[in-house]
Nucleic acid binder design. Structure first.
Lengths: 146, 146
DNA sequence: CTTTAATCCTATTAAATCTATAGGATAATA
DNA sequence: TATTATCCTATAGATTTAATAGGATTAAAG
C-alpha cells in the first residue's frame, strides 16, 4: 500500500518545509516579542524537538534572534522582504535537487563522467537548476505571506 | 571531509542519470542491433548489475526492446524524438523533487498541513514544479544528443 | 537566592531510501 | 548440448533524513 513516488517528491525536505513555515509564522507576529518553540510547534504541527533544531540553525545563520529563560523564545531579525527563499533553503540544506556537478556553491565532479561539458545529462540539469534558482532567488518571505 | 550539500544535490538519482545515459548510448547506435549490458556498462562507467536492473525497467516500460541469448542485448524501440525526459524520469522514479502534495500524478496530502490552498510553501512548490516540468516535457532524447 | 521556564547543544536512535550485488531461471544461438 | 546473454527476485550495504534524549546554560520573577 505504498504510494508510488513522483519525480517531484523530495525536492523539499521536511526540515526546510518546517523552517519556512516557522519563518512565516514568526513574520506574522504583530510585534517582535519572542515566540516559544512550543507555540509554533503546536500551531504548525511540527515535532517540538525537531523544530527546536531547525530554529537553532536559523538563528545561527542570522535569520532569527532568541531570548532564553522565562518569556524567551524566537523572533525574526530580518525584514521578510530581505529573506530570499534560496538563502533559507541553502541554510537548511536538505537535498532538494539535481546532481552535484551542477551545483553553483558546492560543486562536485561525477565519478562516472569524464567530460561534463559533453554530458547531455549535465547540460539538461543546468537548465533546470537555472529555472529553479530563478524562482527561489526572486521569492522572498514577504512574497509568501501575501 | 564530507562536502556540504547544495540545495540541488539530489534532484536526479543515479538510477535516472544512468538510465538517461544508457538511452543516449543506445540512440547513438547506427543500426538497431542489440547492445549488450556489458558494453554500455563499460562505456558509461556504470555498475554492471545496477545497470541491468535499470535497463530491465526501461524495457518493461516500453522504451527498450531486448533479445536473449548469444548476440542478444538491448535496443531502442522508440524514436528519440518521442522520448520525453519527463516520462523517463517518471519510470525510473528516484526522488527528484519537491513535496508530494504538489505531485500531479502521485498526489499525497501533507500530514502537517490542514489547508494546502492556504499553504504558502505549497504554492511556491507548485510554481517550481511547473517550471521544471515544462523543461522535462519539452526535452526529448533527440534534443539531448544534438 | 532559589525556583521555574526557556533556549542551547551534542549525541544518538530509528526509519526510509538509494545503490549495488547475488544467484539462479530462462531463452536463444550455434 | 554448450554457451551466451537477459530475466527476475531477493537482499545486503551505505547514506541520508527525521526524530528523540538529556542535560547545560541563561534569564526572569518572587
Amino acid at each position: 500500500m505504498i504510494a508510488k513516488r513522483s519525480i517531484f517528491e523530495h525536492m523539499l525536505s521536511k526540515k526546510t518545509k518546517y523552517g519556512i513555515k516557522a519563518l512565516i509564522y514568526l513574520s506574522k507576529q504583530e510585534d517582535k516579542t519572542p515566540v516559544q518553540i512550543e507555540a509554533i510547534s503546536k500551531s504548525e504541527n511540527i515535532s517540538r524537538k525537531f523544530l527546536e533544531s531547525i530554529l537553532l540553525t536559523l538563528r545561527k545563520n542570522g535569520f532569527l534572534g532568541s531570548k532564553k529563560g522565562k518569556g524567551g523564545g524566537y523572533y525574526l531579525i530580518k525584514d521578510p522582504v530581505d529573506i530570499k527563499m534560496s538563502s533559507v533553503m541553502r541554510v537548511l540544506d536538505g537535498p532538494i535537487a539535481m546532481v552535484p556537478c551542477v551545483s553553483l556553491n558546492f560543486y562536485e565532479k561525477c565519478d562516472d563522467c569524464p567530460d561534463e561539458n559533453a554530458c547531455a545529462v549535465h547540460n539538461l540539469m543546468v537548465e533546470v537548476r537555472d529555472s529553479t534558482l530563478h524562482i527561489f532567488n526572486n521569492k522572498s518571505l514577504a512574497d509568501l505571506i501575501k
